[in-house]
């Protein structure tokens, strides 16, 4: 290889990526670092933000049970949402995969399309259906005599979980779907020819193979649910706060930025730990199914 070409191939990639790299360092890494620093600053109602290094905010989060409860609620909702999407999304992906060509792509579009539709619009739908006495589904069910009082949905954790599961469902279906695509199309026939019935095929052949897909879908859904803002804000309102809505309030209502930054930093750190940890675990556990 000529030295000119060699030199080019060392310099060229850096020259090409330099603008993007500078953008990311300048307006992503620096702001993130500033946020972490902010969480160590002091704040007072009248004095505003004081750029000193203290642990006040972190102490407050560690000692005040209000924060423990709020984080516990955040993760509880995220876990339940994840379970719900896995329990419903995985079978649906499997059913979808067995449909014939045209129906398959149609329903795939119907189920995955909402991924790109505004979360506000999607959550609004749930509020319209179950929003107290005026909720359309509530009204319908009451007039049919199925229920006597409106189903409690708004400002409840159940409501948040259902609406979040609806928002997150496409991620789970997509992830399981991708795992199903990697399956040998003859694998079910192979199992059947060896004498396996439908239940055995699903339990012994399909499930173990799509499990990595379910788990990686679960990680996505979990981390998105734990940091979700729009849905908890619309369904939970001011009464039922999660980490993201709390940070929002601290920033834009209370104006206690350092405390909000501490909440956000903690959320980010917890999520990174959970996501990286479980990714590593899955990869180790399913080494032979991957690759």
């Amino acid at each position: 290889m000529s030295s000119v070409a060699e030199e080019r191939s060392i310099r060229a990639p850096w020259a090409l990526t330099a603008p993007a790299l500078m953008l990311f360092v300048g307006v992503l890494l620096i702001p993130l670092a500033m946020t972490v620093m902010l969480s160590f600053h002091d704040w007072g109602q009248y004095k505003g933000i004081e750029p000193v290094f203290i642990l006040k905010n972190w102490q407050e989060i560690a000692t005040d049970p209000y924060y423990a409860e709020m984080f516990w609620r955040t993760f509880r909702i995220a876990i339940l949402t994840t379970l719900l999407t896995a329990l419903l999304g995985a079978p649906e992906a499997y059913i979808l995969n067995r449909m014939s060509g045209r129906w398959k792509s149609f329903f795939l579009l119907v189920i995955l399309g909402p991924l790109l539709i505004s979360v506000v619009a999607r959550t609004l739908g749930w509020a319209l259906l179950f929003g107290g006495n005026n909720g359309l589904a509530n009204k319908l069910l009451m007039s049919l005599g199925v229920i006597r009082s409106p189903i409690p949905f708004m400002f409840t954790e159940t409501g948040m979980v259902v609406a979040l599961a609806h928002v997150m469902m496409p991620f789970m279906v997509l992830s399981v779907w991708a795992a199903l695509q990697r399956l040998d199309p003859q694998i079910e026939n192979a199992a059947m020819s060896l004498g396996a019935g439908p239940v055995t095929i699903i339990r012994r052949i399909i499930m173990p193979q799509i499990m990595p897909g379910v788990l990686s879908g679960a990680i996505i859904v979990f981390s998105l649910s734990a940091s979700a803002f729009a849905t908890p804000a619309i369904i939970g309102g001011r009464r039922l706060k999660v980490a993201a809505t709390l940070a929002y309030d601290e920033f834009l209502n209370t104006l206690n930025w350092p405390l909000g930054a501490a909440v956000a930093t903690l959320l980010l750190a917890a999520l990174v730990l959970i996501v990286v940890g479980s990714n590593a675990m899955i990869e180790r556990r399913y080494a032979e199914v991957f690759r």
């Binding site: 040998d184 003859q186 192979a190 052949i205 199914v289």
Partner: peptide, 8 residues
């Protein structure tokens, strides 16, 4: 099977 369809 042509693809063997082994259980991976």
């Amino acid at each position: 099977f042509q693809s063997y369809a082994l259980f991976p």
